[in-house]
């Protein structure tokens, strides 16, 4: 340490370029270092700064609108009367379907791929396919829903169609996260169970899955958050602009929080912009809480291991 600092001073005292065969000045190199550090630090902060501005801007517009009326009223073409209730209920319905469909199917698929699947071409294909599906734009899922679920299956522009499409959309995310969690369970756990005469499923059901749960849960919550905020595929299958009634069942037409926000954003009146901002405040609160919960869960889990 002391040696390097004396070297710095020596280099500084000499004329640049006279330090034997080594022409660059260490002082200048350290200057570049400080500049670079500042640069990458700024890069890290810039996204967060934008997030901060976004939250403040939306909050400033939206918070004054939040009222009992906002949460309990139906949709309306008139900004004065418009409320968020059908959108909130619609999102809850969608979330319910996704919970029932995507979570079990995703976990099951992950367990199959991680614990049962042999290394053959079909399973390799499934694996590549899942990572590709994770990168397919969400609007494409909307077209899948429109072409297959709405028309071919005849489910119409319903809550069920919306829920199923969101399920397919987040399935790859759940599978990938759960696989990682399952893979992280040490082999010795499985072997301990096998050595007692447990079947493969008994070992998985009683030991592997409980240990993989926190990791799988984290990924699943993040995926569910994504489903709650997803807009494009729901527009494609035809969620309605505003609802003057509450959704009645699986085949009811519906709206959802992001859809309602999108529609309000598209209205020219400023009152609607404020409604959109209020909707965003609600949506962001839900997502911040669930994402923070997921991240907290993961950190707790990682520290324990």
């Amino acid at each position: 340490m002391s040696q390097s600092s004396t070297e710095v001073t020596r280099q500084k005292e000499q004329e640049p370029g006279t330090g034997g065969n080594f022409k660059t000045s260490v002082g200048a190199r350290h200057g570049w270092d400080r500049f670079f550090t500042a640069l990458v630090f700024a890069a890290t902060l810039i996204g967060l700064a934008v997030l901060g501005v976004l939250l403040v801007d939306v909050g400033r517009q939206g918070v004054p609108v939040l009222s009992w009326h906002f949460f309990t009223s139906l949709g309306s073409a008139d900004a004065e009367n418009a409320g968020f209730l059908p959108a909130i209920l619609g999102s809850l319905w969608l979330l319910g379907i996704v919970l029932i469909v995507a979570v079990p199917v995703g976990i099951a698929a992950a367990v199959y791929l991680e614990e049962y699947a042999n290394d053959n071409w079909l399973n390799r294909l499934i694996e590549i396919n899942i990572s590709n599906l994770a990168g397919v734009p969400s609007i494409i899922y909307g077209l899948l829903g429109l072409g297959v679920f709405v028309y071919i299956f005849g489910l119409g522009r319903s809550i069920l169609t919306g829920g199923l499409i969101l399920s397919l959309l987040i399935l790859p995310v759940i599978i990938i996260a759960t696989r990682e969690a399952v893979r992280a369970v040490p082999q010795s756990v499985r072997e301990g169970a096998y050595a007692l005469g447990a079947t493969q499923w008994e070992a998985i059901r009683h030991h592997v899955l409980p240990q993989a749960l926190p990791g799988a849960l984290t990924g699943t919550i993040l995926a569910l958050s994504r489903a709650i905020g997803e807009t494009a595929p729901l527009i494609a299958i035809g969620a309605v602009p505003y609802m003057t009634f509450l959704p009645e069942g699986l085949l009811s037409s519906f709206t959802a929080m992001p859809i309602q926000i999108y529609n309000w954003t598209g209205e020219p009146e400023e009152a609607f912009q404020n409604l959109a901002a209020a909707g965003i405040v609600v949506l962001m609160l839900v997502l911040l809480v669930s994402n923070a919960g997921a991240i907290w869960l993961r950190n707790k889990f990682q520290r324990r291991n």
Binding site: L48, V50, G229, I261, T265, I280, L287
Partner: peptide, 21 residues
């Protein structure tokens, strides 16, 4: 985690932000 929160912001929210801010 802060970056992950950034990644979790729904795109409709970004759209609103681009248009109105």
């Amino acid at each position: 985690p802060a970056l992950e929160i950034l990644a979790g912001v729904p795109t409709i929210v970004y759209g609103f932000f681009a248009l109105t801010f």
